[in-house]
Simulated scan of single mutants.
Amino acid sequence: MADASSLPVPAEEPPPTARQQTIALVDDDRNILTTLSIGLHAEGFATRLYADGETALKALLENPPDLAIFDVKMPRMDGLDLLQALRAHSRLPVIFLTSKDEELDEALGLAMGADDYIAKPFSQRLLVARIRAILRRSDLARAQPDAPSQANLPEPVVRGRLRLDPARHQVTWDGKPVSLTVTEFLILEALAQRPGVVKSRNQLMDAAYSDDVYVDDRTIDSHIKRLRRKLRAVDSEFSAIDTLYGAGYSFFDAT
């Protein structure tokens, strides 16, 4: 198997500028790595290429990129194992590449903290649109105020035992911190803004994804399952997110 140093990156690639965002690509298929890298360079991104999960994990933790794209099926350490190991230390945005017959892997990946998945074959335009949407949300979540009195910052949302701080991307339940991805945070925020009001899957998609990104119902359902699992990790009796079958989801102002 080729290691990262033998992969066909463009020769004499200039170092990324301060404003150039970097995408890490992890796949044991050289052709996919080369094709994706060339396409992302054309869109203004810098890329780092890794041929296996073990090599990628060390590099991602030591020198994090802006976003990573993992193939699910890889030897030595597959994409799911790589994501699990990464999530123990980092909330780096991650997109999975899957085959259409890997529905279980897609659901597992979302449950473990992936931000999105794309089924092969896919268009370069779709991939770039999803990358840009996730990076926009990630940049917003990382933004910190210059001073406590800075104007125009969103106010924290407090609903009973739930507190969301959009300016700092922080969530607590009963005062206990809950670690959420950007997509999870936006979905929970959309539900908590209007307690008791049922939000359809389409409305939650609009809240969590930009207009140029398509996701199906199963993606939203997977995010909701993961939200419940994370909140139940700090409160085993958490039940504030309700399902109205055929209509959508709602948040009840728990006290």
Rank of each mutant, 00 (worst) to 15 (best):
M1N: 03
A4K: 11
S6I: 11
S6W: 12
V9S: 04
V9P: 02
P10C: 11
A11V: 14
E12F: 15
E13K: 11
E13A: 14
P14A: 15
P14M: 14
P16C: 14
P16W: 14
P16A: 15
A18E: 12
A18D: 11
R19H: 06
Q21N: 09
A24H: 01
A24L: 02
R30K: 06
L33F: 08
L33Q: 03
L33H: 03
L36P: 07
I38P: 03
G39P: 02
L40M: 07
H41L: 13
H41A: 09
A42P: 00
F45C: 08
A46M: 08
A46I: 11
A46V: 10
R48W: 04
L49A: 03
D52T: 08
G53R: 04
T55Y: 06
L57N: 08
L57Y: 10
K58H: 12
E62D: 15
P64G: 09
P65C: 13
P65L: 13
D66S: 13
A68R: 03
A68W: 09
M74E: 10
P75F: 15
P75K: 15
R76N: 13
G79K: 01
L80M: 11
L82S: 06
L83I: 12
S90F: 08
P93T: 00
P93A: 00
I95G: 00
F96M: 03
F96H: 01
L97W: 07
T98Y: 05
T98W: 05
K100I: 14
D101H: 06
D101Y: 08
L110A: 05
M112V: 08
D115G: 00
D115H: 00
D116W: 05
Y117A: 01
V128E: 08
R130T: 10
R130M: 12
I134F: 13
R136I: 11
R137T: 07
D139S: 08
L140H: 06
R142C: 07
P148H: 06
P148D: 07
S149D: 02
A151M: 03
N152R: 15
L153N: 04
P154L: 15
P156K: 07
P156H: 10
R159A: 13
R159G: 09
G160T: 05
G160P: 04
R163D: 01
L164I: 09
D165E: 15
D165T: 15
V178A: 02
S179Q: 10
T181S: 02
T181Q: 00
V182C: 03
E184N: 03
F185L: 07
I187M: 05
I187R: 01
I187C: 04
I187P: 01
L188W: 02
A190K: 07
Q193R: 14
Q193H: 13
P195S: 15
V198P: 05
S200G: 09
N202H: 04
Q203V: 04
L204Q: 01
L204Y: 04
M205I: 00
V213D: 00
V215E: 07
V215F: 10
D216P: 07
D217Q: 14
I224F: 04
R226C: 14
L227M: 05
K230M: 13
K230G: 05
L231F: 15
V234P: 05
V234E: 08
V234L: 11
D235Q: 08
S236H: 03
F238E: 00
F238W: 09
A240N: 05
A240W: 01
G246Q: 02
F251Q: 00
F252H: 02
T255C: 11
T255G: 10
